[in-house]
Simulated assay, not measured.
Amino acid sequence: MFRGVYVASITILDENGDFDLMKMAAHIDNLINNGVDGILFLGSTGEFYSFSIEQKKKFASFAVNAVNKRVKVLIGTGSTNINEVIEMSKYSKEIGADGVTIVSPYYFGPSESAAEQYFGKIAQSVDIPIMLYNFPARTGTELSAEVVLNLAKKYHNIVSLKDTVDNISHTRKVIQKVKSIRSDFTVLSGFDEYYVLNRLSGGDGVLCALANVDPKLFVSLHKAYENKDSVTIEKCAKKISVLMNLYECTDLFVTGIKAAVKINGLDISTFTNPPGVKITEGQFDIVKKIVDEVRAIV
Rank of each mutant, 00 (worst) to 15 (best):
N30V: 11
D37W: 13
V73A: 10
I32L: 09
E87F: 04
I86S: 03
N68F: 02
I86P: 01
Q55Y: 06
I39Q: 08
K23R: 15
I95Y: 02
I95R: 04
G99E: 00
D98E: 08
I86R: 04
S50K: 07
D37R: 06
T45N: 06
S92E: 03
N81K: 12
D29A: 10
K58H: 11
N30S: 14
F48N: 15
S89M: 01
Y91N: 03
A25Y: 13
E54F: 14
F59R: 14
L42H: 09
I32N: 02
M88T: 07
E84K: 07
G78H: 01
G46Y: 04
L21F: 10
K23S: 15
S44K: 11
D14V: 12
I86H: 06
V73I: 10
M88S: 06
F48L: 12
V73M: 07
D18M: 07
G99H: 00
M22S: 13
I39R: 09
D37I: 07
N68P: 05
Y91G: 05
N83Y: 13
V100K: 05
T80C: 12
I53F: 08
L40G: 06
G78P: 03
M22C: 11
I32Y: 05
L42P: 01
N34R: 15
Y49V: 15
T45H: 00
R70H: 08
N30R: 14
S79L: 07
I39D: 05
G35I: 01
T77F: 10
K90I: 10
Q55M: 11
D20L: 07
K57N: 03
D98N: 13
G96F: 01
T45G: 02
A26D: 15
E87N: 05
K23Y: 15
A66F: 02
A97I: 00
G96E: 04
I86K: 01
L21R: 13
A97G: 00
F62M: 03
L42A: 11
F59H: 13
N81S: 12
K58D: 10
E15S: 10
F51V: 03
I82R: 05
I75G: 02
S44A: 13
R70E: 06
L21P: 11
L31R: 02
V36F: 03
E47G: 09
K69D: 07
M22Q: 15
I82H: 03
Q55D: 10
F51G: 04
N83C: 08
K56A: 04
S61Q: 11
N33P: 13
M24H: 05
I95F: 03
S61C: 07
S50C: 12
I82D: 00
D29V: 04
I39F: 08
D20K: 08
M22R: 09
V67M: 14
S61K: 10
A97M: 07
G78C: 06
E15D: 14
L21M: 15
S79P: 06
L31Y: 01
F62P: 04
K93W: 05
M88I: 07
D14E: 04
V85P: 02
G96S: 03
T77C: 13
E87S: 01
